[in-house]
Protein backbone atom coordinates (compact mmCIF):
# COMPACT_ATOMS: atom_id res chain seq x y z
CA UNK A 1 0.00 0.00 0.00
CA UNK A 2 1.55 3.25 -1.06
CA UNK A 3 0.71 6.87 -1.54
CA UNK A 4 -2.74 8.31 -1.98
CA UNK A 5 -4.54 5.00 -2.03
CA UNK A 6 -2.98 3.94 1.23
CA UNK A 7 -3.92 7.22 2.90
CA UNK A 8 -7.50 6.89 1.69
CA UNK A 9 -7.76 3.34 3.03
CA UNK A 10 -6.28 4.37 6.36
CA UNK A 11 -8.77 7.23 6.68
CA UNK A 12 -11.66 4.94 5.89
CA UNK A 13 -10.40 2.42 8.40
CA UNK A 14 -10.17 5.03 11.17
CA UNK A 15 -13.54 6.45 10.26
CA UNK A 16 -15.06 2.96 10.22
CA UNK A 17 -13.64 2.01 13.58
CA UNK A 18 -14.76 5.33 15.10
CA UNK A 19 -18.23 4.78 13.64
CA UNK A 20 -18.36 1.29 15.18
CA UNK A 21 -17.03 2.18 18.60
CA UNK A 22 -17.86 5.80 19.54
CA UNK A 23 -21.58 5.13 20.12
CA UNK A 24 -20.79 2.17 22.36
CA UNK A 25 -18.15 4.02 24.33
CA UNK A 26 -20.39 7.05 24.86
CA UNK A 27 -23.19 4.80 26.03
CA UNK A 28 -20.79 3.26 28.56
CA UNK A 29 -19.57 6.66 29.76
CA UNK A 30 -23.11 7.91 30.41
CA UNK A 31 -23.80 4.88 32.60
CA UNK A 32 -21.66 6.65 35.22
CA UNK A 33 -23.70 9.84 34.95
CA UNK A 34 -25.37 10.99 38.16
CA UNK A 35 -28.16 12.78 36.31
CA UNK A 36 -31.39 11.01 35.60
CA UNK A 37 -31.46 12.63 32.15
CA UNK A 38 -29.03 10.46 30.24
CA UNK A 39 -27.36 13.02 27.94
CA UNK A 40 -26.93 15.73 30.57
CA UNK A 41 -23.76 15.18 32.57
CA UNK A 42 -24.38 15.53 36.28
CA UNK A 43 -21.16 14.18 37.70
CA UNK A 44 -19.67 10.75 38.22
CA UNK A 45 -21.75 8.17 40.03
CA UNK A 46 -22.38 4.46 40.21
CA UNK A 47 -25.92 4.86 41.48
CA UNK A 48 -27.47 3.26 38.37
CA UNK A 49 -25.45 0.12 38.95
CA UNK A 50 -26.86 -0.06 42.45
CA UNK A 51 -30.38 0.43 41.10
CA UNK A 52 -29.75 -2.29 38.59
CA UNK A 53 -28.47 -4.83 41.10
CA UNK A 54 -31.43 -4.18 43.35
CA UNK A 55 -33.95 -4.87 40.60
CA UNK A 56 -35.42 -8.34 40.94
CA UNK A 57 -36.91 -8.01 37.47
CA UNK A 58 -33.45 -7.70 35.97
CA UNK A 59 -32.13 -10.70 37.87
CA UNK A 60 -35.10 -12.84 36.84
CA UNK A 61 -34.82 -11.86 33.19
CA UNK A 62 -31.06 -12.45 33.20
CA UNK A 63 -31.37 -15.89 34.70
CA UNK A 64 -34.13 -16.84 32.26
CA UNK A 65 -32.05 -15.63 29.31
CA UNK A 66 -28.97 -17.51 30.50
CA UNK A 67 -30.94 -20.71 30.98
CA UNK A 68 -32.38 -20.46 27.49
CA UNK A 69 -28.99 -19.57 26.02
CA UNK A 70 -27.24 -22.56 27.58
CA UNK A 71 -29.92 -25.04 26.56
CA UNK A 72 -30.13 -23.53 23.11
CA UNK A 73 -26.38 -23.63 22.57
CA UNK A 74 -26.10 -27.24 23.71
CA UNK A 75 -28.90 -28.57 21.54
CA UNK A 76 -27.97 -26.37 18.59
CA UNK A 77 -24.42 -27.75 18.65
CA UNK A 78 -25.71 -31.32 18.65
CA UNK A 79 -28.21 -30.81 15.84
CA UNK A 80 -26.02 -28.40 13.89
CA UNK A 81 -23.02 -30.72 14.01
CA UNK A 82 -25.11 -33.57 12.61
CA UNK A 83 -26.46 -31.25 9.92
CA UNK A 84 -22.97 -29.97 9.05
CA UNK A 85 -21.69 -33.54 8.84
CA UNK A 86 -24.54 -34.47 6.54
CA UNK A 87 -23.83 -31.48 4.31
CA UNK A 88 -20.08 -32.00 4.11
CA UNK A 89 -19.80 -35.77 4.13
CA UNK A 90 -22.91 -37.18 2.50
CA UNK A 91 -23.15 -35.95 -1.03
CA UNK A 92 -26.24 -37.75 -2.20
CA UNK A 93 -29.39 -38.26 -0.20
CA UNK A 94 -33.05 -37.73 -0.75
CA UNK A 95 -34.08 -34.18 0.05
CA UNK A 96 -30.55 -32.76 -0.01
CA UNK A 97 -31.61 -29.64 -1.94
CA UNK A 98 -34.42 -28.99 0.51
CA UNK A 99 -32.03 -29.66 3.38
CA UNK A 100 -29.37 -27.19 2.20
CA UNK A 101 -32.13 -24.64 1.57
CA UNK A 102 -33.47 -25.04 5.09
CA UNK A 103 -29.96 -24.68 6.51
CA UNK A 104 -29.09 -21.45 4.69
CA UNK A 105 -32.51 -19.78 4.94
CA UNK A 106 -32.57 -19.04 8.70
CA UNK A 107 -29.39 -16.98 8.33
CA UNK A 108 -31.20 -14.33 6.30
CA UNK A 109 -34.86 -14.92 7.15
CA UNK A 110 -36.42 -11.76 8.63
CA UNK A 111 -37.01 -12.38 12.31
CA UNK A 112 -40.61 -11.24 12.20
CA UNK A 113 -41.45 -14.06 9.78
CA UNK A 114 -39.62 -16.73 11.78
CA UNK A 115 -41.23 -15.53 14.98
CA UNK A 116 -44.76 -15.36 13.59
CA UNK A 117 -44.55 -18.73 11.86
CA UNK A 118 -43.19 -20.52 14.93
CA UNK A 119 -45.86 -19.01 17.14
CA UNK A 120 -48.58 -20.18 14.79
CA UNK A 121 -46.98 -23.65 14.77
CA UNK A 122 -47.01 -23.81 18.56
CA UNK A 123 -50.65 -22.76 18.67
CA UNK A 124 -51.62 -25.31 16.03
CA UNK A 125 -49.69 -28.06 17.81
CA UNK A 126 -51.36 -27.10 21.05
CA UNK A 127 -54.78 -27.43 19.44
CA UNK A 128 -53.90 -30.73 17.79
CA UNK A 129 -51.97 -32.63 20.44
CA UNK A 130 -52.12 -30.40 23.48
CA UNK A 131 -48.40 -29.66 23.41
CA UNK A 132 -46.89 -27.19 24.21
CA UNK A 133 -49.44 -26.59 26.95
CA UNK A 134 -48.14 -23.10 27.59
CA UNK A 135 -45.59 -20.90 25.92
CA UNK A 136 -42.45 -19.70 27.65
CA UNK A 137 -38.99 -21.06 28.22
CA UNK A 138 -39.52 -24.24 26.16
CA UNK A 139 -40.97 -22.56 23.10
CA UNK A 140 -38.34 -19.82 23.13
CA UNK A 141 -35.60 -22.44 23.38
CA UNK A 142 -37.02 -24.45 20.48
CA UNK A 143 -37.26 -21.32 18.35
CA UNK A 144 -33.66 -20.37 19.16
CA UNK A 145 -32.34 -23.87 18.44
CA UNK A 146 -33.96 -23.75 15.01
CA UNK A 147 -32.00 -20.75 13.83
CA UNK A 148 -28.84 -21.35 15.90
CA UNK A 149 -28.34 -24.85 14.49
CA UNK A 150 -28.13 -23.37 11.01
CA UNK A 151 -25.16 -21.22 12.09
CA UNK A 152 -23.50 -24.23 13.74
CA UNK A 153 -24.07 -26.34 10.62
CA UNK A 154 -22.36 -23.71 8.46
CA UNK A 155 -19.35 -23.55 10.80
CA UNK A 156 -19.03 -27.35 10.93
CA UNK A 157 -19.51 -27.71 7.21
CA UNK A 158 -16.80 -25.18 6.39
CA UNK A 159 -14.38 -26.85 8.80
CA UNK A 160 -15.02 -30.25 7.27
CA UNK A 161 -14.89 -28.97 3.71
CA UNK A 162 -11.25 -28.01 4.20
CA UNK A 163 -10.18 -31.47 5.39
CA UNK A 164 -10.14 -34.69 3.45
CA UNK A 165 -11.76 -37.90 4.54
CA UNK A 166 -8.45 -39.71 4.98
CA UNK A 167 -8.57 -39.87 8.75
CA UNK A 168 -12.08 -41.29 8.80
CA UNK A 169 -11.23 -43.80 6.11
CA UNK A 170 -8.08 -44.83 7.96
CA UNK A 171 -10.15 -45.55 11.07
CA UNK A 172 -12.71 -47.56 9.06
CA UNK A 173 -9.83 -49.45 7.49
CA UNK A 174 -8.47 -50.29 10.94
CA UNK A 175 -11.77 -51.86 11.88
CA UNK A 176 -13.76 -49.03 13.49
CA UNK A 177 -17.47 -49.05 12.64
CA UNK A 178 -19.05 -45.81 11.38
CA UNK A 179 -20.39 -44.46 14.68
CA UNK A 180 -17.12 -45.38 16.36
CA UNK A 181 -15.29 -43.36 13.70
CA UNK A 182 -17.62 -40.44 14.32
CA UNK A 183 -16.84 -40.56 18.02
CA UNK A 184 -13.10 -41.33 17.87
CA UNK A 185 -11.99 -39.31 14.88
CA UNK A 186 -14.51 -36.86 13.44
CA UNK A 187 -15.80 -35.26 16.63
CA UNK A 188 -12.34 -34.59 18.16
CA UNK A 189 -11.37 -32.90 14.90
CA UNK A 190 -14.52 -30.80 15.05
CA UNK A 191 -14.13 -29.82 18.69
CA UNK A 192 -12.89 -26.26 18.00
CA UNK A 193 -15.74 -25.72 15.54
CA UNK A 194 -18.22 -27.05 18.04
CA UNK A 195 -16.89 -24.70 20.72
CA UNK A 196 -17.18 -21.77 18.31
CA UNK A 197 -20.69 -22.91 17.39
CA UNK A 198 -21.68 -23.17 21.03
CA UNK A 199 -20.45 -19.65 21.80
CA UNK A 200 -22.15 -18.22 18.73
CA UNK A 201 -25.44 -19.97 19.55
CA UNK A 202 -25.21 -18.78 23.13
CA UNK A 203 -24.75 -15.18 21.99
CA UNK A 204 -27.45 -15.34 19.32
CA UNK A 205 -29.89 -16.55 21.91
CA UNK A 206 -28.96 -13.85 24.43
CA UNK A 207 -29.34 -11.29 21.68
CA UNK A 208 -32.73 -12.23 20.30
CA UNK A 209 -35.65 -9.96 20.95
CA UNK A 210 -38.09 -10.36 18.08
CA UNK A 211 -38.47 -14.14 17.85
CA UNK A 212 -38.66 -14.51 21.62
CA UNK A 213 -41.35 -11.81 21.81
CA UNK A 214 -43.51 -13.78 19.39
CA UNK A 215 -43.20 -17.21 20.94
CA UNK A 216 -43.13 -16.28 24.62
CA UNK A 217 -46.04 -16.66 26.95
CA UNK A 218 -47.22 -14.91 30.09
CA UNK A 219 -44.55 -14.53 32.73
CA UNK A 220 -41.54 -15.37 30.60
CA UNK A 221 -39.59 -12.15 30.03
CA UNK A 222 -36.09 -12.48 28.65
CA UNK A 223 -33.43 -9.85 29.18
CA UNK A 224 -33.76 -8.30 25.69
CA UNK A 225 -37.53 -8.15 26.17
CA UNK A 226 -37.03 -6.32 29.46
CA UNK A 227 -34.54 -3.90 27.93
CA UNK A 228 -36.84 -3.26 24.98
CA UNK A 229 -39.86 -2.56 27.15
CA UNK A 230 -37.82 0.05 29.05
CA UNK A 231 -36.07 1.84 26.19
CA UNK A 232 -39.16 2.05 23.97
CA UNK A 233 -40.16 5.08 25.95
CA UNK A 234 -36.77 6.78 25.83
CA UNK A 235 -33.33 6.80 27.38
CA UNK A 236 -32.84 5.12 30.76
CA UNK A 237 -29.59 5.46 32.72
CA UNK A 238 -29.99 2.04 34.34
CA UNK A 239 -30.07 0.49 30.87
CA UNK A 240 -26.77 2.25 30.14
CA UNK A 241 -25.36 0.52 33.19
CA UNK A 242 -26.77 -2.82 32.11
CA UNK A 243 -25.35 -2.32 28.60
CA UNK A 244 -21.92 -1.54 30.05
CA UNK A 245 -21.90 -4.75 32.06
CA UNK A 246 -23.11 -6.87 29.14
CA UNK A 247 -20.60 -5.38 26.72
CA UNK A 248 -17.70 -5.86 29.13
CA UNK A 249 -18.67 -9.47 29.84
CA UNK A 250 -19.08 -10.25 26.15
CA UNK A 251 -15.80 -8.56 25.24
CA UNK A 252 -13.88 -10.52 27.85
CA UNK A 253 -15.60 -13.71 26.71
CA UNK A 254 -14.82 -13.09 23.06
CA UNK A 255 -11.21 -12.19 23.84
CA UNK A 256 -10.81 -15.36 25.85
CA UNK A 257 -12.40 -17.53 23.17
CA UNK A 258 -10.35 -15.84 20.47
CA UNK A 259 -7.16 -16.37 22.43
CA UNK A 260 -7.93 -20.07 22.96
CA UNK A 261 -8.72 -20.58 19.30
CA UNK A 262 -5.64 -18.71 18.17
CA UNK A 263 -3.53 -20.94 20.38
CA UNK A 264 -5.17 -24.05 18.96
CA UNK A 265 -4.65 -22.81 15.44
CA UNK A 266 -0.99 -22.23 16.16
CA UNK A 267 -0.68 -25.77 17.47
CA UNK A 268 -2.38 -27.02 14.35
CA UNK A 269 -0.05 -24.98 12.17
CA UNK A 270 2.95 -26.44 14.00
CA UNK A 271 1.71 -29.91 13.23
CA UNK A 272 1.68 -29.39 9.52
Amino acid sequence: MTGKRSRFLLTMLCFGMAFLYIPIILMMIYSFNYSKLVPVWGGFSTRWYTTLFQSEEVWAATSLSLKIAVMNATFAVMLGTLAGLALARIHRFRGRTLFTGMISAPLVMPEVITGLSLLLLFITLNQMIGWPASRGITTITIAHITFSMAYVAIIIQSRLAGTGQDLEEAALDLGAKPFRVLWDITLPQLAPGMVAGWLLSFTLSLDDLVIASFVTGPGATTLPMLIYSRIRLGLRPDINALATIIILVVTIGVLLAGWIMLRQQKQLANRQ
Partner: peptide, 29 residues
Protein backbone atom coordinates in the same frame (compact mmCIF):
# COMPACT_ATOMS: atom_id res chain seq x y z
CA UNK B 1 -8.71 -5.25 12.84
CA UNK B 2 -10.84 -8.24 11.98
CA UNK B 3 -11.47 -8.81 15.64
CA UNK B 4 -12.50 -5.17 16.08
CA UNK B 5 -15.03 -5.55 13.27
CA UNK B 6 -16.47 -8.78 14.64
CA UNK B 7 -16.61 -7.68 18.29
CA UNK B 8 -19.70 -5.42 17.99
CA UNK B 9 -21.46 -8.26 16.19
CA UNK B 10 -21.14 -10.34 19.37
CA UNK B 11 -22.47 -7.61 21.62
CA UNK B 12 -26.18 -7.05 21.89
CA UNK B 13 -27.90 -5.79 18.75
CA UNK B 14 -30.57 -4.11 20.82
CA UNK B 15 -28.01 -2.23 22.91
CA UNK B 16 -26.13 -1.03 19.85
CA UNK B 17 -29.37 0.44 18.54
CA UNK B 18 -29.97 1.96 21.95
CA UNK B 19 -26.53 3.58 21.83
CA UNK B 20 -27.69 5.55 18.79
CA UNK B 21 -30.78 6.71 20.63
CA UNK B 22 -28.41 8.40 23.05
CA UNK B 23 -26.48 10.03 20.23
CA UNK B 24 -29.45 11.22 18.20
CA UNK B 25 -31.94 12.28 20.89
CA UNK B 26 -33.12 15.92 21.07
CA UNK B 27 -30.84 16.44 24.05
CA UNK B 28 -28.45 13.83 22.74
CA UNK B 29 -24.72 14.00 22.20
Amino acid sequence: LLFLVILPFWTSFLLRVYAWMGLLADQGT
